[in-house]
Design a protein around this nucleic acid. Structure first.
Lengths: 155, 155
DNA sequence: GTAACTCATTACCCGTGCTAACTATTCCTG
DNA sequence: CAGGAATAGTTAGCACGGGTAATGAGTTAC
């Protein structure tokens, strides 16, 4: 398995499997920290709120508990996030039709508009960085993203 | 550029470059959240503190400012982290030899012991997850990690 | 019909990032 | 060489976002 010809920019490669876990963990933490800083200034929603809004836009209305599971967060945390989104008018809460314990959260028209309007701009920084990479590097990240997400979903 | 033969497990691939930024961002955030939960219960140090300790173990003593830059954090944040590490006895602070404005932070024997003893265990969860991946997937992550770290270092 | 369970919430705590303002030191410049 | 600018670190204070524990409302099972 020779990759030498299509990785001109980044030479450093983590070799051992033991080290991979460490390196990957640190890389993910640093990049996340970097990303948290880069949100668009005229967007008053946090990255977590936008993430939840994105889930609702993609997968449709769901309960608070389902949202918490999807984002790998405890229910109280999601309650707070959802409350913020309701306050800003980006989601609406309504009771579940049959099970009145549950609260169904649905993205509002404003929220959907925000997602649509923001989609192109909110990733500006990362997208710009990605353009500076080589096509081969982008290809690696394109394949790595779903693997990372898979890891995040493991028990 | 055909990768089809070495990606059996994860089929989903982010296709557009615009979508890549979004997907990568969300994947990184979710995995980081997952990782934050997985720290070893009998380790009283946070993941950030362990990260700083790891940098000191790998690259040797450095100033607070250099540490802040390395971890992509503002100086006050690193001051607090270093103070915690000093309080737990994992680092020692000493004045810079020539420039007395600077404070040089050095890992202590206890800190080095903690890093060494912890190295095998602190990544247990991620390492275990990694073992469940195919060799091809691990190869992707092995190449992705430095790219992600590179992204985190961009302006 | 009551006990056990589930979903969401409230209250509270902690870690960790930030900015602004301050002190101490060093550097630069007239 | 004096004095202002620049740099390193710290302190203080704020915000966000995670967590657990406890509570209330609703459902399910016995």
């Amino acid at each position: 398995m020779s990759y030498a010809n299509d990785m001109p920019t980044v030479e450093k490669v983590v070799r051992s499997d033991a080290g991979l876990a460490s390196e990957l963990r640190l890389s993910v933490m640093r990049l996340r920290r970097r990303l948290a800083v880069e949100r668009h200034p005229d967007n008053e929603l946090s990255i977590n709120q936008m993430s939840v809004l994105g889930v609702l836009a993609r997968r449709g209305a769901m309960s608070v508990g389902e949202l918490a599971t999807a984002e790998r967060v405890q229910p109280p945390s999601m309650t707070r996030t959802v409350n913020c989104l309701e306050e800003s008018g980006d989601v609406v809460k309504r009771p579940h039709e049959t099970d009145r314990r549950q609260i169904v959260v649905e993205i509002s028209e404003q929220g959907r508009g925000r997602v649509a309007a923001d989609r192109d701009r909110r990733d500006a920084w990362l997208a710009r960085c990605l353009l500076e990479l080589t096509p081969a590097e982008r290809a690696i990240l394109r394949r790595a993203a779903p693997i990372l997400d898979n890891l995040a979903q493991k028990d």
